[in-house]
């Protein structure tokens, strides 16, 4: 069986390194990119099984842009958008109401600094790997 492929895009090299290590320890294959631009190139060529995007990279909403582009191409791939604070730049993002879900094309919105076991649980839930 082929390994599950997870795309991680983050411009913080430390966060990218740590996420990669964490996700690999779950037994998944990781493809990583450190900018929205690079992320877009990867999406064009590879279909991941799940993607984790940082919110603020070159643009304040880079994570949403990537999420939108990925979903347009592969509507079935689950997306996690991650960021360091709940209320970045004065905006409160959440995926609670339907209209928010429509606008923000992500399946889950996570605060950074998530614990390993929590992350594992969320990924298996989104991949439906019970």
């Amino acid at each position: 069986m082929e390994k599950v492929k997870i795309l991680i895009v983050d411009d913080d090299p430390d966060y990218l390194f740590q996420m990669k290590l964490m996700v690999e320890s779950f037994g998944f294959e990781v493809i990583s990119a450190d900018s929205q631009k690079e992320g877009e190139i990867i999406i064009k060529e590879i279909k991941p099984d799940l993607a984790i995007f940082d919110l603020m990279m070159e643009n304040d909403d880079s994570g949403f842009i990537l999420s939108y582009k990925l979903k347009r191409k592969y509507p079935d791939v689950p997306v996690i958008v991650a960021t360091a604070v709940a209320a970045e730049a004065g905006m409160i993002f959440g995926l609670n109401t339907d209209s928010e879900k429509n606008w923000i094309k992500a399946d889950l919105y996570l605060e950074k600094g998530i614990r390993k076991d929590q992350l594992h649980k969320e990924i298996t839930r989104l991949l439906k790997l019970y």
């Binding site: 966060y15 960021t83 209320a87 004065g90």
Partner: peptide, 21 residues
Amino acid sequence: FQFLSVLSHELKAPLNAIEGY
């Protein structure tokens, strides 16, 4: 408010990184 939320982001990002390490 905007200044403080960006500031908290900027302070939290290195803390998260160090905690992760």
